[in-house]
Design a protein around this nucleic acid. Sequence first.
DNA 1: CGGTATCCTTCGCGATACTG
DNA 2: CAGTATCGCGAAGGATACCG
Lengths: 112, 112
Amino acid sequence: MKIRKEYTCPLEIVHDILRGKWKTVILWQLKYRGKASLSQLEQDINGISQKMLLEQLRELREFGIVDKINFEGYPLRVEYFLTEDKGEKILTALEIMQEVGRQYIKELQKNK
Amino acid sequence: MKIRKEYTCPLEIVHDILRGKWKTVILWQLKYRGKASLSQLEQDINGISQKMLLEQLRELREFGIVDKINFEGYPLRVEYFLTEDKGEKILTALEIMQEVGRQYIKELQKNK
DNA sequence: CGGTATCCTTCGCGATACTG
DNA sequence: CAGTATCGCGAAGGATACCG
């Protein structure tokens, strides 16, 4: 993820954060799971590799959109979840985009 | 812009469309302009090249998010604008992201 | 003014192997 | 189970020149 030195608009920051292929899907999954372990997310998200998943989760945590808890002991266990302020808020934006997506698909089928 | 053959979720389609560096900024500008010519957008959007601008506008039109009118005669004149259904709707999502961006900046300054 | 074509660089991301 | 490191390819995007 490439972050610029200067931004003229707050929207661009958020957009640069979310631009990657996987971040929105990860957030979507976290919404429906509530809390999720790494392996749960890996199973739920079709085609993602562990490396990508961890990388994107780390970036999302850096920006306060996602947080996690580390549990002690073996086997290792973690819980990822959306933050209340930024995480949940961004989800409301994604829901709107989801709706537009549905509308788009609907129109495609009409035109068949 | 890379569009996949199959999608499991309508959100991913919209996200793939908007993923590029410039599309959200273009949409944002179109909202405040209402209608805009190519050269107006080129001036308003810091750092964008004409090639990028045209490329992104074409893609946005393909997906029914933006539309344009060609006026006859010389000098050539066009008007780009958001579509009422998908265009305006996506803007409401971008406004939320904008808000999260403001919040993020605020927190950065607190922690200085 | 609006739009197209070409070339070249950079970056996202997939594959794969390894660690506590 | 959770996490890190490396490497190679293809897509995104910048610069530039040209056309109606």
